[in-house]
Amino acid sequence: MSSKNQEVSQPLVVVAAAAEDLEDFELLVTDVARALELVPAPELVAREEGSEKAIEKLLAMASSVSGPLLVLPARHHAGAMPDRAGKARGVVARMRRVLIPSDGSEEVAAETRALYRRFTRVGVHVTMLHVMTENNMPRMWEGSGHHAAAWFDELRRRHGAAPDVLKVVSGEPGHELRVQAGAADLVVLFWRHDSRAGHAAVIRSLFARGIEVPKLLVALEWMEGHVSAGHVPEPSAGSG
């Protein structure tokens, strides 16, 4: 495991069930670390994917670190893919397609936008997913057509997204995320660093149903202090 930016001392905690998993996802870990300008700090955790106990353990770990936590799927879940040498092994993943769900709140929109800039800068295709629920939908909706177009345009601009980057669906967030995550190399999950019961519901749901996609848990508090404060140029119109 290495980083191209050794000057940065902030850690990116990488959680894997086995050493093989770390190897399989080495390129992806490197990509994530480069985008976030962090040094990978691997952690091996023997975990049983999907069990309640394992989820609580993961969340406890995520709570104990201030920075991002990259959780790799267990190797036995990963399909066999040829590596660069054409040798069959686990997943030799790169970070090419990232899914960032947003609840549309001002805070998450701002941080989604900041990460979008970071990922776009290193050539990654980002899809933002807004799952409309009764908790985050506009209280007034004048209808399809003019209103919907204006609403979507503003939502997109608050996320700093080009028109084809933001996708809106309706439904149960955990389910919709699982549906969309299959097309991504990485799912970014913002959270409020609170693992108490009743919090982090979407994260729990995703881990409980075991999607085989690496997940990056990022605390909003950390984003505000690190990524958002950085001066990364906005992607030009049509990028992403």
Partner: peptide
């Protein structure tokens, strides 16, 4: 008046107003 427009999911739907 447009004959069609987008809904909240960006899908094209008829507008009959």
């Amino acid at each position: 008046t447009p004959k069609s427009g987008v809904n909240q999911h960006g899908e094209i739907v008829p507008i009959r107003t």
